[in-house]
Protein backbone atom coordinates (compact mmCIF):
# COMPACT_ATOMS: atom_id res chain seq x y z
CA UNK A 1 0.00 0.00 0.00
CA UNK A 2 1.20 3.42 -0.88
CA UNK A 3 1.12 6.26 1.53
CA UNK A 4 -1.82 7.66 -0.32
CA UNK A 5 -4.01 4.65 0.20
CA UNK A 6 -2.90 4.48 3.78
CA UNK A 7 -4.36 7.91 4.20
CA UNK A 8 -7.64 6.55 2.93
CA UNK A 9 -8.35 9.33 0.49
CA UNK A 10 -8.67 7.12 -2.56
CA UNK A 11 -11.69 5.17 -1.49
CA UNK A 12 -15.03 6.78 -1.61
CA UNK A 13 -16.70 7.41 1.66
CA UNK A 14 -20.43 7.00 1.76
CA UNK A 15 -22.06 9.95 3.41
CA UNK A 16 -25.59 8.60 3.23
CA UNK A 17 -27.66 9.00 6.31
CA UNK A 18 -28.62 5.77 7.88
CA UNK A 19 -32.30 5.44 8.49
CA UNK A 20 -33.21 6.00 12.09
CA UNK A 21 -34.61 3.17 14.09
CA UNK A 22 -38.38 3.63 14.12
CA UNK A 23 -39.99 4.98 17.27
CA UNK A 24 -41.53 2.39 19.47
CA UNK A 25 -45.22 3.12 19.71
CA UNK A 26 -47.90 1.93 22.06
CA UNK A 27 -50.47 1.07 19.42
CA UNK A 28 -53.04 -1.63 18.80
CA UNK A 29 -50.36 -3.99 17.48
CA UNK A 30 -48.60 -3.93 20.78
CA UNK A 31 -51.80 -4.07 22.76
CA UNK A 32 -53.11 -7.10 20.92
CA UNK A 33 -49.73 -8.78 21.04
CA UNK A 34 -48.76 -11.38 23.62
CA UNK A 35 -47.50 -8.85 26.16
CA UNK A 36 -50.63 -6.75 25.82
CA UNK A 37 -54.19 -7.49 26.78
CA UNK A 38 -53.83 -11.30 26.80
CA UNK A 39 -51.13 -10.99 29.41
CA UNK A 40 -53.30 -8.59 31.38
CA UNK A 41 -56.10 -11.12 31.44
CA UNK A 42 -53.81 -13.91 32.46
CA UNK A 43 -52.39 -11.87 35.29
CA UNK A 44 -55.81 -10.72 36.42
CA UNK A 45 -56.89 -14.33 36.69
CA UNK A 46 -53.96 -15.26 38.88
CA UNK A 47 -52.39 -12.26 40.58
CA UNK A 48 -55.20 -9.83 41.32
CA UNK A 49 -56.87 -10.41 44.66
CA UNK A 50 -59.33 -7.75 45.74
CA UNK A 51 -60.73 -7.89 49.24
CA UNK A 52 -63.98 -6.04 48.63
CA UNK A 53 -66.11 -4.28 51.19
CA UNK A 54 -64.28 -2.33 53.87
CA UNK A 55 -61.00 -2.27 51.96
CA UNK A 56 -61.94 0.16 49.21
CA UNK A 57 -58.78 2.27 49.22
CA UNK A 58 -56.45 -0.69 49.60
CA UNK A 59 -58.22 -2.36 46.71
CA UNK A 60 -57.88 0.73 44.57
CA UNK A 61 -54.17 0.88 45.34
CA UNK A 62 -53.77 -2.78 44.40
CA UNK A 63 -55.72 -2.28 41.21
CA UNK A 64 -53.67 0.76 40.20
CA UNK A 65 -50.36 -0.93 40.87
CA UNK A 66 -51.55 -3.98 38.95
CA UNK A 67 -52.16 -1.83 35.90
CA UNK A 68 -48.98 0.14 36.41
CA UNK A 69 -46.76 -2.92 36.48
CA UNK A 70 -48.46 -4.36 33.44
CA UNK A 71 -47.97 -1.11 31.49
CA UNK A 72 -44.37 -0.90 32.69
CA UNK A 73 -43.71 -4.29 31.17
CA UNK A 74 -45.60 -3.51 28.00
CA UNK A 75 -44.23 -0.05 27.29
CA UNK A 76 -41.48 0.81 29.74
CA UNK A 77 -40.56 4.25 28.52
CA UNK A 78 -43.76 6.17 29.20
CA UNK A 79 -45.15 7.22 32.54
CA UNK A 80 -48.26 5.59 33.89
CA UNK A 81 -50.75 8.32 33.05
CA UNK A 82 -49.24 9.01 29.63
CA UNK A 83 -49.30 5.33 28.79
CA UNK A 84 -52.92 5.11 29.90
CA UNK A 85 -53.81 7.95 27.57
CA UNK A 86 -52.09 6.15 24.69
CA UNK A 87 -53.93 2.91 25.41
CA UNK A 88 -57.22 4.78 25.56
CA UNK A 89 -56.48 6.39 22.22
CA UNK A 90 -55.65 3.06 20.64
CA UNK A 91 -58.98 1.76 21.89
CA UNK A 92 -60.82 3.84 19.32
CA UNK A 93 -59.23 1.96 16.42
CA UNK A 94 -61.42 -0.40 14.49
CA UNK A 95 -59.38 -3.53 15.17
CA UNK A 96 -59.28 -2.71 18.82
CA UNK A 97 -63.01 -2.09 19.03
CA UNK A 98 -63.71 -5.43 17.40
CA UNK A 99 -61.40 -7.20 19.82
CA UNK A 100 -63.03 -5.47 22.75
CA UNK A 101 -66.44 -6.58 21.56
CA UNK A 102 -65.07 -10.14 21.40
CA UNK A 103 -63.88 -10.05 25.01
CA UNK A 104 -67.17 -8.66 26.23
CA UNK A 105 -69.09 -11.32 24.35
CA UNK A 106 -66.98 -14.01 25.93
CA UNK A 107 -68.30 -12.85 29.27
CA UNK A 108 -71.87 -12.96 28.12
CA UNK A 109 -74.00 -15.87 29.13
CA UNK A 110 -74.34 -18.39 26.32
CA UNK A 111 -77.35 -18.38 24.12
CA UNK A 112 -78.72 -21.53 25.67
CA UNK A 113 -79.86 -22.12 29.20
CA UNK A 114 -79.36 -18.68 30.60
CA UNK A 115 -83.07 -17.81 30.72
CA UNK A 116 -83.54 -20.06 33.70
CA UNK A 117 -80.71 -18.44 35.57
CA UNK A 118 -81.99 -14.96 35.14
CA UNK A 119 -85.41 -14.38 36.62
Amino acid sequence: PTTQSALGIDEEVSVQKRARAPNVKLDEERLLGPAGIPKLRARAATGLRLKGRGHEFGDAQRLLSFYQLWLDDLFPKARFLDALAMVEKAGHKRRMAAARMEWINEGRPGRAGDEEERD
Binding site: I37, L48, R53, Y67, E88, G91, M96
Partner: peptide
Protein backbone atom coordinates in the same frame (compact mmCIF):
# COMPACT_ATOMS: atom_id res chain seq x y z
CA UNK B 1 -68.15 9.48 47.40
CA UNK B 2 -64.82 8.03 46.28
CA UNK B 3 -65.24 5.18 48.71
CA UNK B 4 -68.66 4.33 47.34
CA UNK B 5 -67.45 4.50 43.74
CA UNK B 6 -64.44 2.30 44.48
CA UNK B 7 -66.63 -0.20 46.28
CA UNK B 8 -68.90 -0.37 43.27
CA UNK B 9 -65.90 -0.81 41.07
CA UNK B 10 -64.48 -3.82 42.93
CA UNK B 11 -67.92 -5.39 43.07
CA UNK B 12 -68.31 -4.95 39.34
CA UNK B 13 -64.91 -6.49 38.66
CA UNK B 14 -65.92 -9.54 40.63
CA UNK B 15 -69.19 -9.73 38.75
CA UNK B 16 -67.75 -9.21 35.29
CA UNK B 17 -64.07 -10.01 34.79
CA UNK B 18 -64.15 -8.41 31.34
CA UNK B 19 -64.29 -5.05 33.07
CA UNK B 20 -60.58 -5.49 33.74
CA UNK B 21 -59.99 -4.84 30.05
CA UNK B 22 -62.70 -2.26 29.60
CA UNK B 23 -61.26 -0.20 32.42
CA UNK B 24 -58.56 0.90 30.06
CA UNK B 25 -60.87 2.37 27.48
CA UNK B 26 -63.67 4.80 26.87
Amino acid sequence: LVKQILRKCTKKIDERPELIIEMLFS
